[in-house]
């Protein structure tokens, strides 16, 4: 930041990183990147870089955590020490424990937990580089990794945030906007079932602004959803294309 406070959004409605108010950051999704995991995904959302590995369903360890009537979903959100400007201690912080819980609760409605009782699924989320909105990017990637592992799901979960900067409601805040802005509303959403599985708010918004933020975030989710589906299909499509080429020869 310069000495004189720069505006987060200018009069034309262009933000500091050149985006319009309702524009997402560029998104790259990849599935099946870790051969040792049962399912995996990698996401680049703007400058966020997040890797997710899924293991299970498998026998629950320690055993006393298993439930006789359903499987247990465990999530671990972790930020690498080099993911932010100032070194982050690798020990789980208060924030990471909370995000792990929040991410778990946003994914649980998408799974048929009652199908395989006494087992556990582990979801490991590693944030390699953070630039605001990591919880949303993590949920999007974790849903892909779960689908890739072959666990039955009701729907993919997509997440996206909206917020307020300089009295304007905008989509998909990045780090600077998150820190200097007035509010942040992350939303996780299952598009086919039209169900919201995560809704948080940090900051202050009027009821009208809040409603606008939620609808903007769900619209953002609907934009990400086709990309998510495409990423999942790509893993299997390339095999199909290869064999088609072969037969054409």
């Amino acid at each position: 930041m310069n000495d004189k406070q720069e505006k987060l959004i200018d009069k034309k409605g262009i933000r500091l990183d050149g985006r319009k108010a309702d524009e997402l950051r560029p998104l790259k999704l990849e599935v099946g990147v870790l051969p040792n995991a049962d399912g995996s995904a990698y996401v680049e959302h703007g400058k966020n870089k997040i890797l997710v590995g899924v293991f299970g369903p498998r026998e629950m360890h320690p055993k006393h955590l298993s439930r006789p009537d359903r499987m247990v979903l465990r999530c671990r959100y972790h930020m690498a020490p080099f993911s932010v400007q100032e070194r982050k201690s690798p020990a789980p912080s208060r924030r990471e424990v909370e995000l792990s819980k929040v991410i778990r609760e946003s994914l649980e409605p998408a799974l048929f937990l009652e199908l395989y009782p006494r087992t556990g699924i582990d979801v490991f989320i590693e944030v390699l580089q953070a630039d605001g909105g990591t919880r949303c990017a993590s949920i999007t990637a974790a849903a892909l990794a779960l689908a890739d592992s072959g666990i039955p799901m009701r729907d993919l979960v997509v997440a996206c945030a909206a917020g307020k900067i300089e009295d304007t409601v905008v989509l998909d805040l990045y780090d600077a906007e998150d820190k200097l802005g007035a509010a942040d509303v992350p939303v996780a959403y299952m598009p086919n079932l039209n169900a919201i599985t995560l809704l948080q708010m940090d900051g202050t918004l009027t009821p009208e602004e809040f409603e606008k933020a939620v609808s903007m975030a769900t619209d953002g989710c609907k934009q990400i959803y086709p990309m998510q589906k495409e990423a999942l299909k790509t893993k299997y499509m390339h095999i199909k294309e290869e064999t088609q080429e072969e037969t054409e020869e």
Partner: peptide, 26 residues
């Protein structure tokens, strides 16, 4: 009726199946 896994759909006598591309052994 919704799909629960990634796979290929087929319809056999009014019964909609998805042949899963990824699953574990049950």
């Amino acid at each position: 009726i919704f799909s629960a896994r990634i796979g290929l759909v087929d319809c056999d006598n009014k019964k909609v199946n998805v042949v899963a591309l990824r699953a574990f052994y049950a």
